[in-house]
């Protein structure tokens, strides 16, 4: 069973051998507050990068800019060599559907959908047949140890279960990049470790890059490289492996 990607998105075909995602002098303001102040960064294919920093430093804003959810006020974000700001919103939507996966701290599951529906959603959006999408989602839930909540909705799961389901949804369509914003922020340490193990191991197995925003050093330790953001600028970068 393979996931057939839509072929109507030529905008982000690989154009050169270079970084998968690249931010160049990115600036972003919210009113008078400067969130990002000329931040440049490169992320290679398959690389796991942890973004650390104190509250309000601009970590989450950086993640949203890299994912094309927010458009920067200045500078540029490029995915596979192509500027995200230069393409229409519909193309960015397809990009998020086909190439990106997301895990947030809480509340990212669609509440009216069951766990199985949530996980199969990206597959069905990508054009997989309903039955195949359901089978694959069920298998994925099983591999993450949450197949027992397949028919439950978000409100009927524990925080750890909901987060594992969210990881399953982010990974099930084999995205090229996973954006994770404080993925263990609402979990206890045991569940937090479990979620990180699953996220990182599956991403490595699939060859997905991961942009991991966290303020916890033990979570950042799962990454290949960590960068520290302070006052919207890159304060420190170091390879961990």
């Amino acid at each position: 069973m393979t996931l057939e990607r839509e072929t109507d998105v030529p905008a982000f075909a690989a154009t050169s051998v270079g970084p998968l995602i690249e931010s160049v002098d990115v600036r972003k303001r919210f009113g008078s507050t400067v969130a990002l102040d000329g931040l440049s960064l490169e992320i290679a294919g398959g690389e796991i990068v942890a973004v650390l920093g104190p509250s309000g430093s601009g970590k989450s804003t950086l993640l949203l800019c890299l994912a094309g959810i927010l458009l920067p006020d200045g500078g540029d974000v490029r995915y596979r060599g192509r500027s995200l700001a230069s393409v229409p919103d519909a193309v960015r939507t397809r990009l998020r559907r086909d190439d990106f996966g997301f895990v947030f701290q809480f509340g990212q599951l669609v509440p009216e959908l069951t766990a199985l529906d949530n996980v199969s959603l990206p597959l069905r959006l990508a054009g997989l047949r309903r039955r195949d999408a359901i089978d694959r989602a069920r298998a994925f839930l099983g591999s993450l140890g949450v197949d027992d909540v397949a028919e439950s909705r978000a409100g009927e799961m524990s925080g750890g279960q909901a987060q594992r389901v969210a990881v399953a949804r982010a990974l099930v369509s084999r995205p090229r990049v996973i954006f994770a914003d404080e993925p263990t922020g609402s979990l206890d340490s045991t569940n937090g470790e479990l979620v990180m193990e699953l996220l990182v191991s599956t991403a490595r197995r699939q060859g997905s890059s991961v942009v991991l925003v966290t303020h916890e050093p033990q979570v950042a330790a799962y990454a290949d490289r960590e960068i520290v953001v302070r006052d919207g600028r890159l304060a420190h970068a170091a390879a961990l492996v």
Binding site: A67, T93, R94, D98, V110, L121
Partner: peptide, 8 residues
Amino acid sequence: VLSVVGVA
């Protein structure tokens, strides 16, 4: 969230 995961 639906928008983020790519639902048109």
